[in-house]
């Protein structure tokens, strides 16, 4: 079986993540001895091809941002492999990783704090170019100016400081910085959630246009299902550090198979009247602590369809339809038929 979520093994796979784990130690006491681990990401696998947007959705604290940060090697992975254009970068040292950063760039959630307030916009965007010695002097200025125009900013804004821009313009700066070194993969960690709704659409459209034009691979982390439906080619739903369902956009929204996905979709407001209203599934209780995840299926404590075996058996991610993987005991493989809830 191919890695979950890989429609067909292909040479244009930009990123392949296998069984990625990130556990944060919990330290306590005088000698800060490790008393436990927060299993922020616990065995996540997926792949992203050129020109493809994979969205990671889930509620706060499910580990979706940690996945992006770990791939960007801002966090050290605890286990698993991160294969970027054929090279496993998960075990590279701090200095060894640097050349590979040219192939992947990150867009951050907060456009206010992710730009150094003491540098001008031009300096911020030109930094990646100088880091890799890609341009100097007037060439650098010209490239930065064209990046500004590409993201919809006026080139004469280069001399301004971040505080002189609006939120949407700052996120455009963040996007220009990410594009500067012509990466093949963009890790976008909730790039819209700090923006006004009116500006969100503009920035989202910019990201989609850039993807079409430059054939970028996107790992798009978001909790906004409307945004995800708009930009995502494939969507992975995360719960407590694991992917519980991964499918292409249409299958996931039309036939969600995991009870958590159903609940998530049911919780989102539906603006379109034609769409049949989903049956409301209201989850009770809180998300269990990621430092002590439940036995068996991690969702069994809140699942409306819970069965006795759910607390014992940890369901693997199984392909139930072409390209549609789900980790639920209620959903056996396509041959066994569907156990309708």
């Amino acid at each position: 079986m191919s890695a979950p979520g890989t429609p067909s093994p292909s040479a244009d796979v930009v990123l392949e993540v296998k069984d990625l784990k990130k556990h944060f130690p919990i330290r306590k006491g005088l000698f800060s001895s490790v008393v436990g681990h927060v299993q922020a990401v616990d065995g996540v696998s997926f792949s992203i091809r050129r020109g493809e947007a994979l969205c990671l959705v889930g509620e706060s604290g499910c580990g979706k941002s940690t996945v992006a940060r770990t791939i960007a090697r801002l966090e050290e992975p605890t286990a698993g492999s991160i294969v970027l254009n054929g090279t496993d970068i998960s075990a590279l040292g701090e200095g060894e990783i640097r050349p590979y950063r040219r192939q992947m760039q990150m867009i951050f959630q907060d456009p206010y704090s992710s730009l150094n307030p003491r540098l001008t916009a031009g300096e911020i965007v030109s930094e990646p170019l100088t880091n890799f010695g890609l341009a100097m002097g007037s060439d650098l200025q010209a490239r930065v100016a064209s990046l500004f125009e590409r993201v919809g900013l006026r080139a004469d804004a280069m001399a301004k400081y971040p505080h002189e821009f609006s939120g949407g313009q700052r996120q455009r700066l963040g996007i220009a910085r990410a594009l500067a070194v012509s990466p093949q993969l963009i890790l976008a960690d909730e790039p819209l959630s700090a923006l006004d709704v009116s500006v969100q659409a503009q920035v989202l459209n910019l990201l989609i246009d850039l993807q079409d034009e430059l054939q970028l691979g996107y790992l798009f982390v978001s909790h906004d299902l409307a945004v995800v439906e708009h930009i995502g080619h494939r969507i992975a739903v995360m719960y407590l550090g694991r992917i519980v369902e991964i499918a292409d956009n249409a299958s996931l929204f039309d036939t969600p198979l995991h009870p958590y996905t159903e609940a998530l979709l049911a919780a989102a407001p539906v603006p379109e009247v034609q769409r049949t209203k989903r049956e409301r599934i209201i989850l009770t209780g809180d998300v269990p602590s990621p430092s002590a995840p439940p036995s068996g299926c991690r969702f069994h404590t809140r699942c409306p369809y819970v069965r006795p075996e759910c607390s014992r058996i940890d369901p693997p991610l199984v392909e139930v339809a072409p390209g549609h993987h789900v980790a639920c005991l209620l959903r056996p493989g396509p041959s066994a038929g569907h156990a309708a809830p």
Binding site: F108, Q109, S113, N116, E127, P128, R177
Partner: peptide
């Protein structure tokens, strides 16, 4: 701990440059 340091690391900035350019002025 501020995100612009993460941003600098992610865009391939060397440690020495981060210290002199991003941290020292603050």
């Amino acid at each position: 701990a501020r995100p612009f340091i993460d941003a600098a690391i992610a865009s391939g900035t060397r440690n020495s440059v981060i210290m002199i350019r991003h941290i020292l002025p603050n």
